[in-house]
Design a protein around this nucleic acid. Structure first.
Lengths: 117, 117
DNA sequence: TCTTTCGATCGACGGTTGCCGATGGATCGG
DNA sequence: CCGATCCATCGGCAACCGTCGATCGAAAGA
């Protein structure tokens, strides 16, 4: 992986103790960090995390009218959370007549999962 | 896993199409979702994600004075991010004289990583 | 056409976040 | 002691977030 951030070892130190002898390297560049953090941010809400949990375990498309009664929030709030997950590229939706069916985009969490492991 | 959220299938539907026939089950209860989302939220910032990346890859304790020049932010801001990671239970610090050394708490990300996989 | 239903969007509100400069507390050298 | 260094905290600011009620557009039935 490429290194995006530079490393500037400290020179001034009041004592002779070794402060900056071990050099650290970031393995994730800024753009990759932005993408991964966007996914993490989308998962950083309990309701959205449970939404992903439901959609993933179901392994299919789930109607919004099924998701609403699962959580103690108003319908516009749920729609807002689903939009956040859509904007993060984690889920997508499909309209069938009057209903909207949501599903987790296959492989959308792979990069983040790989970084975390 | 225990199911915390109740499932209330919809009864009224204008057409005969199957809307809520497939029943969905959440596998994560509310408390677990809160813990996992707190970890995800802490990782939901590019700088914090890179911080974790550096600390994890280094496999040891890293002095703050080494972390400051890696990012284009002021020192109080870095300290703020480190506090967020500490509050989330992901990292911890250890003072040695004048310096503070940070490290990733072993196993702190295991639950989240397991849920994601 | 009129009504009902579903889902998205809007507008508004309190609370939180990320960022900075300034300051403080602790530690060490001189 | 005094000054320098490292790091945490404080106060403030603009931006964002989660939430709701109200509303809208699309679709289907009567």
């Amino acid at each position: 992986m490429s290194v995006d951030l530079e490393l500037a070892p400290k020179t001034k130190r009041p004592a002779g103790e070794p402060c900056c002898t071990p050099v650290v390297y970031p393995d994730v560049d800024r753009e990759q960090a932005l993408r991964l953090a966007a996914v993490a941010k989308a998962l950083g809400d309990p309701i959205r995390l449970q939404l992903i949990d439901v959609l993933r375990k179901h392994a299919g498309k789930v109607c919004v009218c099924e998701l609403v009664p699962l959580f103690d929030i108003a319908q516009p709030t749920l729609s807002h959370h689903l939009k956040k997950l859509r904007d993060a590229g984690i889920v997508d939706s499909e309209r069938q007549g009057l209903w909207a069916y949501y599903y987790v985009i296959p492989g959308a969490l792979d990069d983040f999962s790989a970084w975390l492991s």
